[in-house]
């Protein structure tokens, strides 16, 4: 989230009034970019560990296949974990 505040002024429209919608749009875009970067970085870390045992002269065919599969499974798992966490939060809230 670096530079979060740097573009903030763009949200103000030319009339001198703040455009709340435009600000929120920017915030959402920046968060989406940060989320994508985080996912990419973590996925690379996990899949490198799983798929590249001993780094050789190049990424061989089986390693590339493994990486592709690993990415798909990582995103599947992400969705399952996200749903599980969400339903746990709802259960905890119901208890209160």
């Amino acid at each position: 989230m670096d530079g979060f505040g740097s573009d903030f002024s763009v949200g103000g429209s030319s009339s001198g009034k703040v455009d709340t919608g435009a600000i929120m749009e920017q915030v959402k875009v920046q968060i989406a970019v940060a989320n994508a970067q985080e996912l990419l970085q973590r996925m690379t870390d996990k899949c490198f560990r799983k798929c590249i045992g001993k780094p050789g002269g190049s990424l061989d065919n089986s390693e590339q296949k493994c990486v592709a599969m690993c990415m798909d499974r990582y995103m599947d798992a992400w969705n399952i974990v996200s749903r599980a966490y969400n339903s746990r939060l709802q259960r905890e809230r119901a208890k209160m």
Partner: peptide, 21 residues
């Protein structure tokens, strides 16, 4: 928080990534 869970649970639950979970 989901990223954190993934860090722990991926290592615990996934052995070799297959065609589907």
């Amino acid at each position: 928080q989901v990223h954190n869970f993934m860090d722990v649970c991926w290592d615990k639950c996934i052995d070799r990534p297959g065609n589907k979970l």
